[in-house]
Design a binder for these strands. Structure first.
Length: 419
RNA sequence: GCGGGAGUAGCUCAGUUGGUUAGAGCGCCAGGUUGUGGCCCUGGAGGCCGUGGGUUCGAGUCCCAUUUCUCGCCCCA
């Protein structure tokens, strides 16, 4: 055993598992394509200020979970802890809004957060995300949510809960915040320590505290949805209306508060009962002010992110079988050095003609090679020994039916292609 | 940052009140007549028993520390 192991909170996805990941990623790409979202790839790290200024100074991510380091030139960089700010930074930097009314992007990227690992939580994880920039139409909110739903279903996840809320905007949220603070003012002493801090710094975060005491105290607290201004209320009603018309069921959750400060209006989260304590499989919301804060003219936007690692865990827990098969079509099993030499050339020909093929490179017996064919799951074994060399053929064995036919080398690719 | 559980072969795990050369199943490798996989049989390789210290005539087993993994809290995907 080596002393070198993957750093805490990171892990290897081994060759046996990667086909499942690739399959899910492919489904995501296809779904995004159906909704006309295009891929954007942004750097793994960004200037630290992008995150500190846009996610909120008091959020956990910014205050204690970022992987931040200094360059030789004393600039502070940070491994991206989330995907939205970088995507919007790119949108603004390249003025993407100038050429399209609504810019619809998706990304598949690794995110980094320095947290204590546990089930479904890693220090490096993969997130699939989408962002739509340029529309305040509640139909875009519904589109993004329905893209997520369609994607979940495409990989076999039917059971999940969609939680929905509106957290208002800078116009109406202060009123609610004030009402909440007034409600909690004489109860601070009874709240848990972290809620006492939240009361000071970010009162709305008290709403999703899991402490039973806090829950009881806040059960009677005023609700954001009762304080929405006319525009936000109408937007929220429309989102619900559209979702309903799309046949997407949801539950309103007035305690749903997203982790970053940039959200406005719509907030939503998908939770899976198949996961442990970390049961949020994806979530997102509207962030109508970020584009402006990053430096472009005010432009509404809406996005969604989902944790691929947690999605894979959910699939495992649900026992979903994905139709993946990474096995080659044929394995050349050879007897003796002459056959080995002939197979090298034959193998290259097959591959050039688009037939996935492999052969033995360890000098094993035919029997051992056949075992190997079985193990790697190749559909056919092409056996080449002295007889076959003399006749320029291969004994093509169907590993499932055990049928065996003599095929000339020149016809091998064609036979395999039509098999 | 704080709590609970666990580190014995590649994997999943046994290992009796501390007592000789540390085990099983699976996997791996080689055989079971000539050039043929799955099932079966036989044999083999592979372990500083996480690491360091301590108690003891003797430690995989007891004590301490440390480290890693794991589950949970905070929070999030």
């Amino acid at each position: 055993m080596t002393d070198y192991i993957a750093p805490r909170g990171t892990r290897d996805i081994l060759p046996d598992e990667t086909p499942r990941w690739q399959y899910v990623e492919q489904k995501f790409r296809e779904t995004c394509g159906l909704f006309d979202y295009r891929e954007i790839r942004t750097p793994t790290f960004e200037h630290t200020e992008l995150f500190t200024r846009n996610l909120g100074e008091t959020t956990d991510v910014v205050s204690k979970e970022m992987y931040t380091f200094e360059t030789r030139g004393n600039k502070s960089l940070t491994l991206r802890p989330e995907g939205t700010a970088p995507a919007i930074r790119a949108y603004v930097q390249h003025n993407l809004g100038a050429s399209l009314p609504v810019v619809k992007m998706y990304y598949i990227g690794r995110l980094f957060r320095y947290e204590r690992p546990q089930a479904g939580r890693y220090r490096e994880h993969t997130q699939l995300g989408i962002e739509a920039v340029g529309s305040q139409d509640p139909a875009i909110d519904a589109e993004i949510i329905s893209l997520a739903v369609q994607f979940f279903k495409s990989v076999g996840i039917e059971k999940f809960e969609l939680k929905l809320n509106s957290i208002g905007c800078p116009n109406c949220r202060p009123n609610y915040r004030k009402a909440l603070v007034e409600y909690a003012a004489d109860k601070v002493a009874d709240l848990c320590p972290s809620c006492a801090t939240r009361y000071e710094q970010n009162p709305m975060r008290m709403l999703d505290c899991k402490d039973p005491g806090c829950k009881a105290i806040l059960a009677e607290a005023p609700k954001m949805t009762d304080y929405l201004d006319e525009e936000c209320a109408e937007h929220f009603a429309k989102v619900q209306e559209y979702l309903t018309s799309l046949g997407i069921s949801f539950v309103l959750d007035s305690n749903l508060v997203r982790g970053f400060d940039y959200y406005t209006k719509t907030a939503f989260e998908f939770v899976s009962g198949e996961l442990g304590a970390q049961n949020a499989i994806g979530g997102g919301g509207r962030y109508d002010n970020m584009v402006h804060e990053i430096g472009a003219q005010p432009t509404p936007a809406m996005g969604f992110g989902l944790g691929l690692d947690r999605l894979m865990l959910t699939l495992d827990a649900m026992g979903v079988e994905l139709p993946v098969d990474a096995s080659p079509a044929v394995f050349l099993a050879t007897i003796g050095p002459e056959a080995h030499q002939a197979a090298i050339k034959l193998l290259a020909n097959l591959r050039r003609q688009g037939i996935a093929a492999d052969m033995d490179y360890t000098g094993r017996s035919l029997k051992a090679q056949m075992k190997l064919v079985d193990k790697i799951g190749a559909k056919y074994a092409a056996i080449i020994g002295e007889d076959e060399i003399n006749t320029q053929t291969a004994s093509l064995r169907n590993m499932k039916t055990s049928e065996q036919k003599t095929i000339p080398w020149s016809e091998l690719a064609e036979v395999l292609r039509s098999a």
